[in-house]
C-alpha cells in the first residue's frame, strides 16, 4: 500500500535504501540506526580545528589561491584512527564529517540533526547548515561545538547525529547541477569555500577595477605633473 507522507518513515527509508535510490553506506547496525523517521549517522575520522594565527581576518577580496592558503593555515586537520578519540573542549568549534557516504535522489531532501543523547551533553552538530539538497552526494560536514561545561571525548564511529528525509516532487535542479555547488562528492570534512561565491568574485572584480582606475588616475596625474611646465616649476 503506497504511503504518502512528507517525512519518510522507517519503512520508506529502508525501501529507498534497498532499491538503491538512496545511498547511505555503511549501515552496520540498522536495528539501532534506523528510528521511526530518521537514520543515525556516525562520526568520521577527520577533524578540522581552528588555529590562532597572525592573520587579522579572512579577506574575501584577496586572490582566491592566497585566501585558500590562509584558510588552510587557519585550520589544522586532526586524524583520529579507529578507537582513538578527539576531545572537544567547552566552547570549542571544529569541523568533522559523517562516517557514512550519503547520496540523495532527486526527489528527497534531507535534514541533519543532532541526537538528543549528545545534545544533553552540550554537543551541537551543526551551527546553521543542516539542510541537504536533493542530489547531494558525499560525506556530510558537521560543525561541532561544545556548549557544555566539560570536555567531550568524541570517538570516530559513534552515532552523534540523525538524518530525516522529505519527499519532494522530482527536482530538475539537484545539488550537483546547482551553480556554485561547492561541497559535492567529498570524502572528508570540507572547510568553507565562501570565497568561491559569485558575490565575492564580483567584489574582487570591482576592487580590481577600482585599483586599475586609481592607478590610471595616478599615472594620468603624474604625466600631467611632468608635462605641465607651470606645475613642474622648472625650466622649459
Amino acid at each position: 500500500m503506497p504511503r504518502e507522507s512528507a517525512v519518510l518513515n522507517e519503512r520508506d527509508i529502508i525501501e529507498r535504501l534497498t532499491d538503491g535510490s538512496l545511498v547511505i553506506t555503511p549501515v552496520l547496525d540498522p536495528g539501532r540506526q534506523i528510528g521511526p523517521t530518521s537514520i543515525d549517522l556516525r562520526l568520521g575520522f577527520e577533524f578540522d580545528v581552528f588555529n590562532i594565527t597572525k592573520n587579522t581576518h579572512l579577506d574575501p577580496t584577496k586572490d582566491p589561491e592566497e585566501l585558500r592558503r590562509e584558510i588552510e593555515s587557519y585550520t589544522t586537520k586532526i586524524h583520529c584512527a579507529p578507537m582513538e578519540r578527539f576531545i572537544l573542549h567547552p566552547g570549542e568549534f571544529a569541523l568533522a564529517a559523517t562516517l557514512e557516504f550519503v547520496r540523495l535522489p532527486h526527489d528527497l531532501a534531507g535534514r541533519l540533526e543532532g541526537r538528543s543523547t549528545w545534545g544533553r551533553l552540550g554537543l551541537q552538530v551543526h551551527s546553521t547548515a543542516g539542510f541537504v539538497d536533493p542530489g547531494f552526494e558525499g560525506v556530510l560536514t558537521f560543525e561541532l561545538q561544545n556548549f557544555g561545561k566539560g570536555p567531550l571525548p568524541l570517538y570516530p564511529g559513534v552515532r552523534i547525529a540523525q538524518m530525516c528525509f522529505f519527499q519532494t516532487s522530482r527536482t530538475v535542479l539537484p545539488y550537483v547541477k546547482k551553480p556554485g555547488a561547492k561541497y559535492h562528492g567529498r570524502f572528508s570534512s570540507a572547510g568553507s569555500l565562501f570565497y568561491d561565491d559569485p558575490e565575492f568574485q564580483m567584489l574582487r572584480e570591482y576592487q580590481h577595477w577600482l585599483r586599475a582606475q586609481t592607478e590610471f588616475e595616478k599615472a594620468r596625474r603624474g604625466r600631467r605633473v611632468v608635462q605641465d611646465p607651470k606645475l613642474d616649476g622648472g625650466p622649459c
Binding site: 519503512r11 529502508i14 535504501l17 549501515v27 552496520l28 547496525d29 540498522p30
Partner: peptide, 11 residues
C-alpha cells in the same frame, strides 16, 4: 517484519 526489513539492508 520490521526486523526482517532491517536485516535486509545491513552491510
Amino acid at each position: 517484519e520490521l526486523h526482517r526489513m532491517q536485516d535486509a539492508i545491513a552491510e
